[in-house]
């Protein structure tokens, strides 16, 4: 009776065990660097994921003979992250990239168990001897957006909407305020943190509220919330400034410009360090690879002034402020870290 079932089950388990031991295809076919990129969203999201995907693809095109790349999308649930990392490490991948803050804890944990594998984390602060972090110094980008918004506004009111006031977003927002005030000292700035990166609806509500109160240019600092802000701009026919990837396609009449991340700038550094073996010996502070205006990891998309609010004088100012940012001439020391 039930014994039979039990026997069957034990046989089934034993069978799968033998399969498990036989089926190991650990040996790699070539001596290329095996790289896995794990994205929390879709590679064509016109945002955080797409910027990394494109950066990685750019790098791959230039180095096709040296590496093979596996891209995995939509690993968002925390319970999926650790198995994915473990599996790639176990399959003999040399470099594993977790593109997002939520990868930090599992990545550090798995990195400890696979000391010969290189782990790379997209934004965060914890690391191991075999892991590093790439991040964005968003104060540069925010400053430039502030300058553009400050010059473009007709009502003297601008807004900024973000997901959560974690470090780099906070710095971006403060940069925005500095930039806006640098060209327009009496400007009124409204600011909202939605508290959730994917709260498209909430962000849209916030943006509609801002536009209704007279704001005519809003910069958003990323992801799902950004889509909501762009939608609101389209409905109210006002200007929006994008972030991460060029979002012009979303609303051709309303996207004035935006910060564009070019991760390729740091990917080259990271892979050079991995190739030379330096990666495992980096000092703690060297484990952060920043994209900045200076190293051209940050840029702004072409000004698309469909309403004609910017004068040629304004455009010159925008260009010169970018030059200053690239030369590192802007002083950001007034920004204080967020108080917890």
């Amino acid at each position: 009776m039930k014994k039979l079932l039990l026997v069957l089950m034990i046989m089934l388990m034993a069978l799968s065990f033998t399969v498990a031991c036989d089926g190991d295809n650990g040996g790699s076919s070539s001596d290329k660097l095996k790289v896995a990129l794990i994205l929390p969203g879709k590679k064509d999201d016109l945002s955080f994921n797409q910027s990394m995907y494109e950066g990685m693809m750019n790098y791959l095109d230039a180095n096709e003979d040296k590496m093979e790349l596996k891209v995995t999308e939509n690993v968002y649930e925390v319970s999926d992250i650790e198995p994915a990392l473990l599996d790639f490490a176990d399959q003999g991948y040399d470099v594993i990239i977790g593109h997002g803050f939520q990868f930090m804890e599992p990545l550090v944990k798995v990195a400890k168990q696979y000391p010969d594998t290189h782990f790379v984390l997209g934004t965060g602060y914890k690391f191991e001897k075999n892991s590093a972090i790439y991040d964005v110094s968003l104060d540069d980008g925010g400053y430039q957006m502030g300058v553009i918004a400050g010059l473009a506004t007709q009502t003297n009111k601008v807004g900024v909407i973000g997901g959560a006031d974690v470090s780099e977003i906070y710095r971006g927002h403060e940069g925005f305020k500095l930039g806006a005030k640098s060209v327009n000292p009496n400007i009124q700035i409204q600011e909202v943190y939605t508290g959730d990166w994917n709260d498209t609806a909430g962000a849209k509500e916030a943006a509609v509220g801002m536009y209704d109160s007279g704001v005519d240019v809003i910069w958003h600092s990323g992801d799902g919330i950004g889509l909501g802000v762009v939608q609101a701009a389209k409905e109210k026919d006002k200007y929006v400034l994008g972030n991460v990837a060029d979002q012009l396609k979303l609303a051709e009449k309303n996207v004035l410009s935006g910060v564009v991340y070019q991760w390729k700038a740091v990917l080259e550094n990271i892979f050079d360090d991995i190739d030379s073996g330096e990666f495992l010996k980096l000092a703690d502070e060297e484990r952060f690879y920043w994209i900045t205006a200076e190293n051209e990891g940050l840029n702004y998309s072409k000004i698309n002034d469909s309403k004609g609010w910017l004068t040629s004088d304004d455009l010159t100012k925008i260009e010169s402020s970018w030059k200053d940012l690239k030369a590192g001439k802007i002083d950001f020391s007034v920004i204080k870290e967020p108080t917890k």
Partner: peptide
């Protein structure tokens, strides 16, 4: 079932 790690998972 392709590797021990996967089976353990």
């Amino acid at each position: 079932f392709g590797s021990k790690q996967r089976f353990m998972e």
